[in-house]
């Protein structure tokens, strides 16, 4: 097989890890609270700027800045729920889309105001590793590994802890959850914090590979939504698998054509899916 094709597939796999992390966060929030955070990728942007700012202006070492970013974006997640979602929880889904869509533009403009439209990076050059004849960037490898560890950690949390099991259960019967002694508002807040934290973790991984700018969210937001829909909105396993399918379409498509065309193909596939199987590959919901 063509060695460059293998390299493309490996890179696609590595990209899939971070995309799976993002899809997991979005699916978790949708599955529990039944809202789609349109501005999810903009929370990633906030995390990337936070790391850039802490590292460049205050000399905070990158690992520490990453931890702070995770906590910071987790807090942003809580604020998004408290200030935007909770007040309109019972209203029509379109209102929730509009409100979080508004947040998207707000965060973009706010980032432009604070940092300007320039592309910025943390100025770290991680090595390229040669495995056999394949070249892989260490930043991508690191991102993939950390994303996997993060997902396993989340899985253990959802399997082992009381609040984690409640998070998995609440959408199955919200009223009975109250009989168990669970305050649904608390479950929603914890879920929002985790969703934010995952976006923060993704930010820490992406800032090693990409420049941050106010519309960086557009590079990851749409593809994350497509992955969630492809896997079945709210289905965490589905999102995980779909992330790797989608990243391979982009990687392999990019190898044979161009990256731009491969994105076009991916979005085309998404539209066809909506017609053919709107509930997604694994989705039970319609």
């Amino acid at each position: 097989m063509d060695i460059f094709l293998v390299e493309a597939i490996v890179n696609g796999l590595l990209l899939g890890g971070v995309l799976a992390l993002l899809a997991l966060g979005l699916n978790l929030i949708f599955g529990v609270i039944d809202v789609v955070w349109i501005a999810y990728a903009e929370l990633v942007m906030c995390g990337m700027y936070a790391i850039y700012w802490l590292h460049t202006y205050y000399g905070v070492p990158l690992p520490a800045a990453a931890v702070i970013a995770v906590l910071f974006v987790a807090l942003l997640g809580v604020l998004v729920h408290k200030l935007i979602i909770a007040p309109i929880l019972g209203s029509a889904p379109i209102n929730q889309l509009l409100a979080t869509g508004g947040l998207l533009f707000f965060l973009q403009s706010f980032a432009t105001l604070l940092f300007g439209a320039d592309f910025r990076n943390v100025g770290l050059r991680l090595p390229i590793i040669e495995v056999g004849e394949i070249f892989v960037s260490f930043a991508r490898l690191l991102a993939f590994g950390v994303a996997l560890v993060g997902m396993v950690g989340l899985w253990l949390f959802l399997k082992r802890t009381y609040i984690g099991i409640a998070i998995r259960a609440i959408a199955q019967d919200r009223e009975v959850m109250i009989l168990m002694g669970v305050d649904p508002q608390r479950v929603y807040l914890v879920t929002s914090a985790i969703g934010g934290g995952l976006a923060g973790l993704a930010a820490a991984l992406l800032v090693l590979q990409y420049d941050v700018h106010p519309s960086i969210g557009l590079s990851f937001g749409p593809i994350t939504f497509m992955i969630c829909v492809l896997g079945g909105l709210g289905s965490m396993i589905g999102g995980f698998v779909a992330a790797f399918i989608m990243s391979q379409i982009i990687a392999i498509g990019g190898f044979y054509t161009s990256i731009e065309l491969s994105y076009v193909l991916a979005f085309l596939l998404f539209i066809v899916m909506i017609f053919v199987r709107p509930q997604g590959i694994f989705g039970g919901r319609s």
């Binding site: 099991i165 259960a169 959850m177 002694g181």
Partner: peptide, 29 residues
């Protein structure tokens, strides 16, 4: 959500288990 702490537990009409949790996870809740 504090009623159960007071010592009242309710087996609801139609059972209302969490269908996609295991038996033990239901008991855990």
């Amino acid at each position: 959500h504090r009623i159960v702490e007071r010592g009242i537990a309710h087996v609801p009409e139609n059972r209302r288990l969490f269908p996609r949790l295991s038996v033990e996870e239901n008991l855990r809740m």
